[in-house]
């Protein structure tokens, strides 16, 4: 078994099992752990409105800080969107999704999907360097932040290396490294901050609903 066979077979299978197990475990653990019964009188009854409002409002930069965090905020959105464009609309990726879903969607021209990938890669590299050098960000960063960012960068970086044959290494080795980087991302996913993909909006909603119950407009 060569490296590519290993990456496409046992490694990917293992990573997929860990990913599914881990994500379902964490989601079930959180959602089934319903909150303590609150004996106080609710100040507001429409908690869905309160939760939805918080979910949307907290997706915008807080007014008071807007000026200071504009780069952080906009680049965060930009790389997420660009990353997902390159993942979901780069033509060679579509057979990957089709094998699970049984269907696929039209790809974008390579110049768009690859361009998006390049934007995501450049922004992620800038952000991780900034995180490591900015005195405040450095203080509040943990290993989880660095591991999560690096594991998000690796599939992009290895993808470009494989597609463009940018290293004097055989293509199948580069393709195997690309797949292994995806395996690493899947394995880490449920256990680190990357889980925010599934938790950001539910937790914003829940915070909004709880605060709304107490009469606070979040």
């Amino acid at each position: 078994m060569n490296l590519l066979e290993f990456a496409r077979g046992p490694a990917f299978n293992f990573a997929l099992i860990v990913f599914v197990f881990g994500v379902v475990w964490r989601l079930a653990g959180l959602f089934l752990q319903w909150r303590r019964r609150d004996l106080s009188k609710p100040r507001q009854h429409n908690l869905i409105v309160a939760g939805t409002r918080a979910m949307l409002m907290r997706s915008l930069p807080p007014h008071e800080l807007e000026k200071h965090i504009v780069f952080q905020h906009m680049s965060g959105y930009a790389w997420h969107i660009a990353w997902f464009i390159s993942l979901l609309f780069f033509a060679p990726h579509l057979p990957f999704f089709k094998q699970f879903l049984g269907f696929a969607w039209p790809a974008l021209p390579n110049w768009i999907s690859l361009g998006a990938g390049a934007v995501a890669l450049a922004l992620l590299l800038t952000l991780v360097i900034r995180r490591a050098t900015n005195p405040v960000l450095k203080q509040i960063s943990t290993w989880d932040d660095y591991i999560s960012v690096v594991l998000t960068i690796l599939p992009l970086a290895t993808g470009f290396l494989a597609y463009g044959r940018l290293l004097p290494i055989r293509y199948e080795t580069l393709l195997a490294l690309h797949l292994l980087s995806i395996c690493a991302l899947l394995v880490w996913y449920p256990f680190g901050k990357l889980m925010h993909l599934f938790l950001t909006f539910p937790s914003r909603f829940q915070a909004g609903a709880l605060l709304g119950r107490k009469g606070v407009e979040a």
């Binding site: 077979g9 990957f96 094998q99």
Partner: peptide, 9 residues
């Protein structure tokens, strides 16, 4: 099967 597919279980 395209090269970008895997041998998942």
């Amino acid at each position: 099967n395209p090269l970008s597919t895997t041998q998942w279980g």
